[in-house]
Design a protein around this nucleic acid. Sequence first.
DNA 1: CTGAAAGCGCTAACAA
DNA 2: TTGTTAGCGCTTTCAG
Lengths: 339, 339
Amino acid sequence: MNREPELARSKSSRPTMRDVADAAGVGVMTVSRVINGGAGVRPSTAERVREAVGRLGYQLNHAASTLRRRHHASMVIALLVDDIANPFYAALAGAVEEEARAHGFTVLFGSTKEDQVRERELVAAFTARRVDGLIAVPTDTEPWRGAPAGTAVVFVDRPANGLPVDAVLVDGRTAAARGVAHLVEHGHARIGYLGDLESIWTARQRLQGYRDAVGEAFDPALVRQGLRDAASAEQAARELLGSARPPTALFAANDLMTIGAVRAVAACGAGTAVVGFDDIVLADRLSPPLTVLAQDPVEMGTTAARLLFARIDGDESPSREVVLPATLVVRGSGERRPG
Amino acid sequence: MNREPELARSKSSRPTMRDVADAAGVGVMTVSRVINGGAGVRPSTAERVREAVGRLGYQLNHAASTLRRRHHASMVIALLVDDIANPFYAALAGAVEEEARAHGFTVLFGSTKEDQVRERELVAAFTARRVDGLIAVPTDTEPWRGAPAGTAVVFVDRPANGLPVDAVLVDGRTAAARGVAHLVEHGHARIGYLGDLESIWTARQRLQGYRDAVGEAFDPALVRQGLRDAASAEQAARELLGSARPPTALFAANDLMTIGAVRAVAACGAGTAVVGFDDIVLADRLSPPLTVLAQDPVEMGTTAARLLFARIDGDESPSREVVLPATLVVRGSGERRPG
DNA sequence: CTGAAAGCGCTAACAA
DNA sequence: TTGTTAGCGCTTTCAG
């Protein structure tokens, strides 16, 4: 009959500082000092502690450490995007991660899928975890009113709308107008529009830019909104191209719309011109090569992260808005002429 | 001279349960009960507490809560990939997030960039934060020996190599061999190979598959490895195509290599056949459409997450290895004949 | 240079 | 139904 001696604490829970202290024959404070840099500890003592740490496989409990600390910083930021699986947001996430890493921070992420309930849940989860900062592509400013008080927040891709929050934006209205004007200059009078949910600020901006550029020629029959993926965009484009008076050009307001437009044109709209917002890998190798208004997600992510860390580091200046450019990249699909 | 009364705690630190309890005229335990579902609290009392919570903007400190709980679960998992900005890993991340969300978990992420030091730092950071689980594309099994003891771990895309860890894999050797054989069947005898770092397991597997398929015809002069991005892959492909005895086909071992191959073929290798590993958006609209061996990153992510949550939920069965298929998608570029 | 005591914000186990 | 006491793992404070 084995009495299983001293199995009490070694059983399954991880070693604590107390365990390390006992193993090294010192007090917990000494262990704490060694773990946190070892200043003011005799080298030989520190060595004994480190040996015990290694032997027991001890790892600091960051939550406990944080709890007792002065201005308990969690050294975690969170990133909230529409959908992390979308390459545009993935590129932005990569840039944010790099910047966070440079500051010694870890990154949490979440995808809202443009669902406000989901966004609220995620913000609550992040806040409960006491993230030091939050970079978000907000579905709306509503879920943000007061909610994360005490947490630094920076918006990307969408404006703060009066909230005292920094924002990194692109002037999508001007950019879209430029892209559509480009089509007009190439002789197009009937230009179809494929856009995302009207609830999304960027979608509204881009549609506004489209209207600015087409002016009098605006025809609601050519506008399709509320498209959430490439398949529905393709379907909408096919309908447009198959109508009695089809457009001679298509303006696609984001990557997903562009993919749908390219597919529809290939299937049933030979010769239709296309200009897309954002950019796609190998867009220059399509036939014809794709003309786009390219935003720079890496620049957007880096800028947002820099603003956030400035706030975390104590910047208390009034909230700022940084506007980044979108570039018209002329490749071919937007220079096709009608007929 | 304002004496600034009772500014002590309201100054900047966030309200605690004590504050809420005082405001509602109850004990902290009652607040705790209400926050955690409110079972066993008189509705009228609960209502008063909720009112105070709303008024003070109280938010649970998850770290403190976790610290005191039974099997203190953090309800956080971490995802470690090569590079989150890579659409393949972004898609995988999206799938992992969905699964995590279904289980009420939040997700931390990090990119190793195939750097073992960085990987070790990230694993340490995640472990210190006491994540309940870790899904990783490991650069190597070495940083994982014993390190995250007590944390559930699942590998994706690369094997556990003897470590008692679940793994979700694709048989890249067989798949690559099938793709290269496809080229051989279409008359190619000289097939160039573009591959990533030899240190990466999948890269070695795919090269092995290439060797299996070319057999006697293997020529080291046609093999380029250690390529880390599309630009270097394009450069390598251009060199291959510009050599004295250029290959008539190119096998690209991942998306980045494929992009480089397509560019190089367009620039200086008209007619060269191409088969790529993984898949690219609009690959079917390139000229010629791209023939690929497609893996399913969403399926990989979902499977890995399911395995992880099974472990977190207490599954103690021996570690498993799940092998997912790669599909040959015939579109055109791989069916070009030499010459 | 080192350790003991107190307590961060919260919940488990009890008592009322 | 509610409150009290203890203590999670750690760092602060202060005494040796």
